[in-house]
Amino acid sequence: MFNKRSLLFSLVLVIALVLSACGSNQSSGNSGNNGNDGQATDDWKPEKPIEVIAPAGAGGGWDTTARTVSKVMEQTNIIDKRLAVVNKPGGGGAVGWAYVDKKGGNHTLFVTSPPILFVPLNGQSDLGHNDFTPIAGVIADYAAFVVSADSPYNNMNDLIEALKEDPQSISVVGDSAPGSMDHMQFVKAVKAGGVDVKRLKYVSAQDGSGMSMLLGGKVDVYSTGLAEATEQARAGKVKVLAITAPEPLEGETVSEFKTLKEQGIDDQFVVWRGFMGPKDMDPEAVAYYENAIKEMMETDEWKEQRDNFGWNDNYMSSEEFKKFLDEEYKTMEELMNEVGLKK
């Protein structure tokens, strides 16, 4: 149907374009390389836009953190290259992690939080925290266990007593998969209270309908984050049985929430967020980003955004972050082994 000449022409055109493109680029690649060599190695600086991966879709916690940090960095000129936030959603983070691992280099960062421990333990990612370089911890949030305002349970011990009597009588809803954060934070807490955690009833509502199921009286307990619970508690729609912070929090409504420890349950759970890079990131680059994040967290722009989101500063240096991750991993591994969820 099509005439051969035009096909041939197109083919030649393609080949020519491809060859010229690669040819010219190879040389530019080399020159970039030389520039890299010329720089003093102990004073590394980014040479091109930095890709900040949010291993989730737009709008979630990882995405918000990535976008906020990138915005503040650019506003305050702490890093003078562009920080481009790229969403790589899928597999609870696994897709984004695989991307970072494949890409490597000094110009790719990603936002992360406890799922980097849970998802590999669940058997849903081959890559875990040891396959990446911790750069810095940034913020902390805490979990909250919430019941509706007319619930018979008034504190965590009421709930734990009821669960000890019959674990099947109470349904717990969370926004994440079984064996991931919302589930395990609850398991961890009630286990510390002496409940047989193997028989807990956990409903996963991954479309984010957990709160509406609680308000509608479909489930008994909602295991969630502090931020989600605070406004509903302030309006008197729900009761917060416990939060997982190590110390009581300061603030208008949150100061009324009792920690697990205050109620005699020896447990805490920090929902931390921080940045990591690929495994092969140069130590100089790690030091550069570590300092940049530290500097950023002292700016007023950051403090304003942090307060708007209700986040708490939780800076950890690369080394502290790594140690923290290793410890957390061990705790979670034991816990998931016990519940029989580790794969």
């Binding site: 493109a21 690669c22 680029n25 190879q26 530019s28 690649g29 080399n30 970039g32 390389n33 890299n36 060599d37 890709e51 481009a84 936030v85 790229v86 890409k103 490597g104 280099g105 092969d280």
Partner: peptide, 21 residues
């Protein structure tokens, strides 16, 4: 829109060179 369509042609090759040295 700051949605990044792939931009650097022969990207992998360049990265490869840059990180092998």
């Amino acid at each position: 829109l700051q949605i990044y369509l792939p931009q650097e042609y022969c990207h992998s090759r360049k990265e490869g060179l840059a990180w092998k040295h």
